[in-house]
Design a protein around this nucleic acid. Structure first.
Lengths: 339, 339
DNA sequence: TTGTAAGCGTTATCAC
DNA sequence: GTGATAACGCTTACAA
């Protein structure tokens, strides 16, 4: 691997390094003749340009860092897959920053931009990983950045997601239309904005339906199957049980169904269960889970496109961009039981 | 973001750039006094070293590229998560190369090493992404590299995985012990070495049990739920149906169960279903899926450690390294039906 | 259309 | 312990 550089090619092709560089980066500036000559040598020598050298000079790394709480989460994985695809087509590579939800790791990965290793950020969480002076305008303080699937509570940031309020409302509207009057909500952790948005949608639907809002029917989970089990236990212990349970993600819905079945409840005859996300397996649990579908691929594509636009130096209007959700009605929801 | 560099710090601290560099990289070489002085200025100025400049000089990017057919696959996601963790602790970042199984994308990501953007490779597929001269020894032709969870058919490469032959044999041994005599196998695509290894294990178990090997009972799937459905259809159409179906991954097992239930078969009373992988949801399908557990975290950790060892310049004995699998017996397998 | 030469921000090698 | 200086491999004014 005796490294062959641009100078070696230049020497062999009897041109200047600048010309070789042009052959690589802007071939239209080079005459056909020298172009071919140089290309031939490049091939013969198996020369591969060193991107680090170029990066140092151009001050562009060609990398985008994705800051993700958990790559194992199928929602994130689905989005990142589309992102990677779009990035690669545009000549960018994705740096994977799985943070396990830790602030320090979010910061660490944000620092990759500061240290020149990444040109832009895709943020899958709601916390701002950069130190910001709140008295100054945000633009100029942060690099090209797009938030994926969360709400940062700041409309100066470009954000792509599903309209969680509307989506949750649609889910609950459906349960209401099925005659349910006691509809429980198992939310996510209360510091997660998207979970709070879903809660708002839940409230809105209940209010519109003129249903009383029973605080006992609102429980915070942690987005895991186990927490679904635990929350369902609390719900079933109530004197007045819910006839429908709306879970803010599919994992918890799966946990809820697990407990329900274990306790001999019929789904949906006794209790309807609604999820959120439409992960791959929602379709294959028994009964098949009704849920809110999030268009992961489209979210990912929109994110990377908006980021690439910024990286090209073009202005992207900040604020939230909503992609359409879809209510997937399967077998876990049905009419409210009669008493 | 008026970029402040090492020289600025040097000037302000009235030392040489070299000293500032030492403060950052080898503080033990600097006197306490200057160390503090320089650190203070660095803090005050919010100076962040530019890694690209350093990379150019040291010829180390600090990146590792993970070449993965599909990040959406929970097995890969689980492994990569542990890898990312280990890499980050060692100061490395992971470049995500989702290839969608395409050779050209595998090559593309391998090229990141050639172009200096990555120092090592974590390979999740069985194809060698580097051009190799087969007449020469492999070492020297490839960068630090570890294969995760596949078999490259080349013992000169460091590879970490579960012993697929033994694992599949254990799974089938169990079915045999349960009295099954007609055990079907739904394999993966036949160009995937790990699938072929599982097939070997299947053969070995049948042979050891003195069972006839019926070619009708061996079908190649594509590792998707749908392909599980299709393969199960073929199996159920046979005049002599299997009483147990061993699927080479959980997704297909889920598909098989879906069809079985749709057709009114009882699992495991009529047909036992065994999966492979033990993905998160295997536990939550109905009936809970018996399967072979792969220790994803351990695989990931072993991979990154072996790679880091190579990146440190230490020799790592090539060849395959097996991590222990575990047979998870849940509700989808049981005794063979009596006739 | 091509060449010259000055960097990009760091670290390594010498001296001192 | 510290400083001067020359790289690392490339791009890009500017000049020719």
């Amino acid at each position: 691997m005796a490294t062959v550089g641009i100078k070696d090619i230049a020497t062999l092709a009897k041109v200047s390094p600048a010309t070789v560089s042009r052959v690589l980066s802007s071939p239209e500036l080079v005459s056909k003749k020298t172009l071919n000559k140089v290309k031939k040598i490049i091939d013969e020598m198996g020369y591969r340009p060193n991107r680090i050298g170029a990066s140092l000079r151009t001050r562009k790394s060609g990398n985008i860092v994705a800051i993700i709480p958990d790559i194992t989460n199928p929602v994130n994985a689905g989005i990142i897959r589309a992102i990677e695809q779009g990035a690669q087509s545009a000549g960018y590579s994705i740096l994977l920053g799985d943070t396990q939800g830790l602030v320090e790791r979010e910061r660490h990965y944000a620092d990759l931009v500061t240290s020149g290793q990444a040109d832009g950020v895709l943020l899958f969480c709601s916390r701002m990983p950069f130190r910001i002076d709140p008295t100054l305008p945000l633009s100029g303080q942060i690099p090209p950045m797009v938030n994926a699937n969360e709400n940062m509570g700041n409309d100066e940031i470009v954000q792509v997601a599903v309209d969680n309020v509307a989506a949750a409302k649609a889910a609950v509207d459906y349960l209401v239309a099925q005659g349910h009057k006691r509809i429980a909500a198992i939310t996510g952790p209360d510091d997660i904005p998207s979970s709070n948005e879903r809660l708002q949608g839940y409230f809105a639907a209940l209010e519109e339906a003129g249903l009383v809002l029973d605080p006992d029917l609102q429980i915070a989970g942690t987005y895991t199957v186990d927490s679904g089990v635990n929350c369902a236990e609390k719900l079933l212990l109530l004197r007045k049980r819910p006839t429908a349970i709306f879970c803010f993600n599919d994992e918890m819905a799966i946990g809820v169904m697990k407990l329900l079945k274990k306790q001999g409840f019929l789904i949906p005859e006794d209790v309807s269960v609604m999820g959120f996300d439409d992960i791959h397996y929602a379709e294959y649990v028994t009964p098949a889970l009704s849920t809110v579908h999030q268009p992961l691929k489209e979210i990912g594509t929109a994110c990377i496109n908006l980021l690439l636009e910024q990286l090209r130096g073009n202005h992207v209007p900040p604020g939230r961009q909503f992609l359409p959700f879809e209510l997937k009605l399967r077998a876990s929801t049905g009419p409210a039981p009669h008493f």
